[in-house]
Nucleic acid binder design. Structure first.
Lengths: 338, 338
DNA sequence: CTGAAAGCGCTAACAG
DNA sequence: CTGTTAGCGCTTTCAG
């Protein structure tokens, strides 16, 4: 059973294809097609549940009404929540989202961009991995709207929405220092994207500003691809070998969650003598006993800014090749003391 | 800068469009195109970074190599994890995923199916909401592969992958009874999809089998659309008004998380005298003090089964209109005692 | 006010 | 072995 096409409708209504097309696209008035015809055709359209074939339309018009979303991992609540918000807003404007997870793999990321390109998505929202600068540059050269978020790519003239990571860890570290902590460990991931670097710099600077020497022994870098056992072993080692640690700052929520697991396992209590802080909030931290303080990223706002920029470019940007205003947005994280 | 088309390539290589098309689609050998030509054309293709326009291809061939994923909420870790797994496997077979969240709204769900239809997705993976049976039936009539999951739609001959919800809550309730609990509250959501009903039935049956009367006063149904404050207030009321409650079984993880929040707020300790159990695992429960027992759904397996069915139908199903074998898969949840 | 017709980029018969 | 050609379903210009 072939789906009905515009041709079928035209035939049934005994009008031309053109007429149907105008009616379908709401240009009937403008084209001054008679009310009677409009009504008659519309009735037939409703009757047949006719929905125009978007693929054909895309081929003709060149836009697919689809936005490509490339993140690290859609199952991570941070990205999931953003995806959700973006979807909502885009949907209201008639856009759909196609997503893909890069797993921080530049090769996969490149493939994904290629794939989206062949599918002619109208715009891209990307949480970039290192090494795709050139691909993004290419997109830009083709005047395709792009917004990157979460991480910035320093030398690229592209829209971005990021959070002030430096300030986030600075606040967190300062908080710990103010609490009298002297040996604050820093646990991070070995993905040296801009935002991770800044989180480290914030920590380092806060130590420096308070004349606490940076101690390499209590800095731990977990491999992104590390499996659970390895990660746990590495964290355990950190705690065992450095009993002087009186606080830990985790640079991502999933590391902090792993850390809590390890601490539980080795029966190391969290209290006034041993505090932990996570970057990125999570239900776990709120409900933990005792509750865990966090650096919270304004997820809603991030998503909103992203989709606003995208939709704005999609509306105005492409038609007028006017001055290409680039949006560079840095939002402030909040330190939530618990 | 228009992207290069197959025509451009043909022109540059001084061959016909057909030749290029065959080479691009790997049918060159089969069509016995000379090695030399293949190499020369391939070189030009590489040079230009030519990627065929998938939209045009879709229009021509009728398939878009895209799978539509319709879930309740992509930011819920349960759906997010499944989405992730599905994406992985589909990607390896050259399929992409378009997702959408229904928010349990049948109207939106219908619109989404319509939208996907107009975009000609090749297959559907749906966590159904009540009231879209007819739309799914329509899809089936058009011989489009569909798999539903999480919830079953009783009277529909469609592939499904679900978990034995009845058994899940039965096990959980039995566990609590074995621990000596007499007043087990049940907190659920007001979305009466098949799987939620079964969760309640499992609870009810376990009580009955152990001669514990069902007590309506400690059954609480939270509105899906309820905001945080309302939900909290309702839960608080439940606990305050029924101090005899010695255990609570939550039918979803997000309700259990809210529940934990409320209990913390009213300083009600969780211990041997007051136990809580959640349906669906979550990091929160594992790391909670004390840890919370859960009914765990085999997420990986759910995702795997779903995508296997879809890909299988996509490969074989459509071309041979042979006997349409329907896969009805019910997986067993596990009770994790903590 | 409405219709004819030219493609969008690609695939796949069918001809050489 | 390679080229010609007819569409896939739709939009849109240009004629009536």
């Amino acid at each position: 059973m072939k789906p009905t096409s515009i041709k079928d409708i035209a035939h049934m209504a005994s009008v031309s294809i053109t007429t149907v097309s105008f009616i379908v696209n709401g240009k009937a008035e403008q084209m001054r097609i008679s009310k009677k015809v409009i009504e008659r055709v519309q009735a037939i359209i409703d009757e047949c549940d006719f929905v125009p074939n978007q693929v054909a339309r895309s081929l003709r018009t060149g836009n697919t009404k689809t936005i490509g979303l490339i993140v690290e991992d859609i199952s991570n609540p941070f990205f999931g929540s953003i995806a959700r918000k973006i979807e909502d807003k885009a949907y209201k404007k008639g856009y759909k989202i196609s997503y893909s997870s890069t797993e921080n793999d530049p090769v996969k990321a490149k493939e994904l961009i290629e794939m989206f390109k062949s599918r002619q998505v109208d715009a891209y929202i990307i949480a970039p991995v290192p090494g795709i600068e050139s691909d993004i540059k290419q997109l830009l050269a083709e005047k395709i709207p792009v917004v990157i978020f979460d991480r910035n790519l320093a030398d690229l003239e592209v829209n971005f929405v990021v959070v002030d990571n430096f300030n986030g860890t600075y606040m967190a570290t300062k908080h710990l220092i103010d609490k009298g902590k002297k040996n604050i460990a820093f646990v991070t991931v070995d993905v040296h994207v801009d935002q991770m670097n800044n989180r480290f710099y914030g920590y380092e600077k806060a130590l420096e500003d308070h004349r606490i020497p940076y101690n390499e022994r209590i800095y731990s870098e977990i491999s992104f691809d590390s499996n659970d056992d390895n990660t746990n072993a590495q964290l355990m080692l950190l705690f065992k070998k450095n009993p002087e640690i009186d606080a830990v700052l985790f640079s991502t929520n999933y590391l902090a969650i792993k850390g809590l697991g390890v601490l539980k396992q080795i029966n190391k209590p969290i209290n006034d003598d041993f505090t932990i802080v996570s970057y990125d909030d999570h239900d776990v931290f709120r409900l933990h006993t005792p509750p865990i303080s966090v650096v919270d990223q304004p997820i809603e706002e991030i998503a909103e800014r992203i989709i606003d920029i995208v939709l704005h470019e999609l509306m105005s940007g492409s038609k007028s090749s006017a001055k290409h205003e680039i949006s560079k947005i840095t939002l402030q994280p909040h330190f939530i003391e618990r």
